[in-house]
Simulated scan of single mutants.
Amino acid sequence: MAQEATANEQKKFKVPRIPGDIMIYPMIVGLLLNTFCPQVFEIGGFFTAACRGGSNVIVAAILLFVGAGISFKSTPGAIKTGIVVLIPKLVVAAALGLGVAYFFNDNFLGLSSVSIIGGITFCNMALYTGIMGEFGDESEQGAVGILFFTAGPAVTMIILGVSGLANIPIGTIIGSILPLVIGMVLG
C-alpha cells in the first residue's frame, strides 16, 4: 500500500517553488495569454480595465482585498509596522541619492540620484502582499496601505523637489499621489 502511494505521488506534477513564485507564475500565464490570444483580455468591465493599463484599478482592488482581510483591532499595529518599514527606507534613499547628486556629480557607477532614490523607495506591493498573506500577521498585512505611498514616482519626485535637484510643480506631485489616496479611501 505504501508503495502505491509513493508511485502516485511521483506521477503528480508539482510546480517547483522559487522565490516570488506567487507573482512570477501568474505573470508568465498572463504574458503567454496576451501574446498568443490577447482577445481573452477584452471581455469588458473591470477585468479589461485592470488588464489594459489599469494600474490604479489594480491598486484599488489590492487595497480593498487587503482591507477586507484585516480587522480594526490590527490597525494600530499596521500603522506602526508601515511606518517602521517606510521611514528608514525613505531616509536611506534620500541620503544615498542626494549624496550621489552632491558628492559624485549625479553619477556613481552609472547610477543617477533619480535611479537610486527611485530604486530604493519603490516597493513591489503585489509581492509584499502575497508574502505577508502567507507568512505575516494582520498588522503586517495591513501595512500595505501605508507602503503603497512608495508604489509610484511621488516619493522620488518629492525628495528631488524638496532638495532642489528638480523643478517639479506641486500639481504633478499631487496628481501622482491622488490615485493612491483615492484607492486607500475606497479600499
Results as ranks from 00 to 15, higher is better:
Phe103Pro: 03
Phe103Ile: 08
Phe103Cys: 04
Phe103Thr: 05
Phe104Asp: 01
Phe104Lys: 00
Asn105Tyr: 02
Asn105Pro: 02
Asn105Val: 00
Asp106Pro: 02
Asn107Arg: 00
Asn107Val: 04
Phe108Glu: 06
Phe108Leu: 05
Phe108Asn: 00
Leu109Ser: 06
Leu109Pro: 01
Gly110Asn: 01
Leu111Lys: 02
Leu111Ala: 06
Ser112Asp: 05
Ser112Ala: 03
Ser113Glu: 02
Val114Pro: 04
Val114Trp: 01
Ser115Lys: 07
Ser115Glu: 05
Ile116Tyr: 05
Ile116Leu: 04
Ile116Val: 06
Ile117Met: 04
Gly118Ser: 03
Ile120Ala: 01
Thr121Cys: 06
Phe122Trp: 04
Phe122Gln: 04
Phe122His: 03
Phe122Thr: 02
Cys123Ala: 12
Met125Cys: 09
Met125Asp: 05
Met125Thr: 08
Met125Gly: 05
Leu127Asn: 04
Leu127Phe: 09
Leu127Cys: 08
Thr129Gln: 00
Ile131Cys: 06
Ile131Gly: 06
Ile131Arg: 04
Met132Cys: 13
Met132Asn: 07
Gly133Glu: 07
Gly133Asn: 10
Glu134Gly: 02
Glu134Ala: 03
Glu134Asp: 01
Glu134Met: 02
Glu134Leu: 05
Phe135Ala: 06
Phe135Trp: 07
Asp137Gln: 09
Asp137Ser: 09
Asp137Glu: 11
Asp137Met: 12
Asp137Val: 13
Glu138Leu: 09
Glu138His: 00
Glu138Thr: 04
Ser139Lys: 05
Ser139Pro: 04
Ser139Tyr: 01
Glu140Tyr: 01
Glu140Asn: 07
Glu140Phe: 02
Gln141Arg: 04
Gln141Leu: 08
Gly142Cys: 03
Ala143Val: 10
Ala143Gly: 13
Ala143Pro: 02
Val144Leu: 13
Val144Met: 12
Gly145Arg: 02
Leu147Glu: 08
Phe148Tyr: 15
Phe149Ile: 11
Thr150Ser: 08
Thr150Tyr: 07
Thr150Met: 10
Ala151His: 10
Gly152Glu: 11
Gly152Cys: 09
Gly152Arg: 13
Gly152Thr: 13
Gly152Leu: 13
Pro153Lys: 09
Pro153Asn: 08
Pro153Phe: 03
Ala154Ile: 13
Ala154Leu: 13
Ala154Gln: 09
Val155Gln: 09
Val155Ala: 11
Val155Thr: 13
Val155Ile: 14
Val155Pro: 07
Thr156Ile: 12
Thr156Leu: 07
Met157Glu: 08
Ile158Asp: 08
Ile158Asn: 08
Ile158Ala: 15
Ile158Gln: 08
Leu160Ala: 12
Leu160Val: 15
Gly164Phe: 11
Gly164Asp: 13
Gly164Asn: 12
Gly164Ala: 12
Gly164Arg: 14
Leu165Met: 14
Leu165Gly: 11
Ala166Lys: 11
Ala166Trp: 10
Asn167Leu: 11
Asn167Gly: 14
Pro169Val: 13
Ile170Thr: 13
Ile170Gln: 15
Gly171Asp: 12
Thr172Asp: 11
Thr172Leu: 10
Ile173Pro: 10
Ile173Asp: 13
Ile173Phe: 14
Ile174Leu: 15
Ile174Arg: 13
Ile174Met: 14
Ile174Ser: 15
Gly175Tyr: 14
Gly175Asn: 11
Ser176Tyr: 15
Ile177His: 14
Ile177Ala: 12
Ile177Gln: 07
Pro179Gln: 11
Pro179Cys: 13
Leu180Phe: 14
Val181Tyr: 14
